[in-house]
């Protein structure tokens, strides 16, 4: 088992939509594109753009097995690198808020 990554702010993950995507992917082995679109409540183009950014960073992988009738479903999963970056980012968010007074 790998050690917990230390706190590290990640600009790529911090963008709200990408953060939500990464959190959703961390909770699953694979998630379908349409589920992520539903989570974000945005258009396909916006989801695609966010996924492309995450993919270029090496944080997610996309697979497109051809379904019955030729329908292509895109499945997205978090890579080991993406998981580490998310853990580090969440640890940093916790570190940053440690000294703040409790929210109302």
């Amino acid at each position: 088992m790998s050690a917990e990554p230390g706190p590290r702010f990640d600009e790529i993950i911090h963008a709200p939509n990408r953060l939500r995507i990464c959190v959703a992917l961390a909770a699953t082995a694979e998630t379908e594109f349409s589920v992520l679109r539903e989570l974000l409540g945005v258009s396909d183009a916006v989801v695609s753009k966010q996924l492309r950014t995450l993919q270029e960073a090496g944080y997610v992988t996309l697979t497109k097995p051809t379904g019955r009738g030729g329908r292509v479903r895109t499945w997205v999963s978090l890579t080991g690198r993406g998981r580490q970056a998310l853990q580090g980012h969440i640890a940093e968010l916790r570190r940053l808020t440690r000294h703040l007074p409790a929210a109302e």
């Binding site: 709200p16 953060l19 959703a24 909770a27 969440i90 968010l93 703040l100």
Partner: peptide
């Protein structure tokens, strides 16, 4: 830090949704 708190709230909401 303020931004981080918002992000942590967002994480909780996303986890709840998933």
């Amino acid at each position: 830090s303020v931004d981080a708190r918002g992000a942590l709230d967002d994480i909780r909401r996303a986890r709840g949704w998933v």
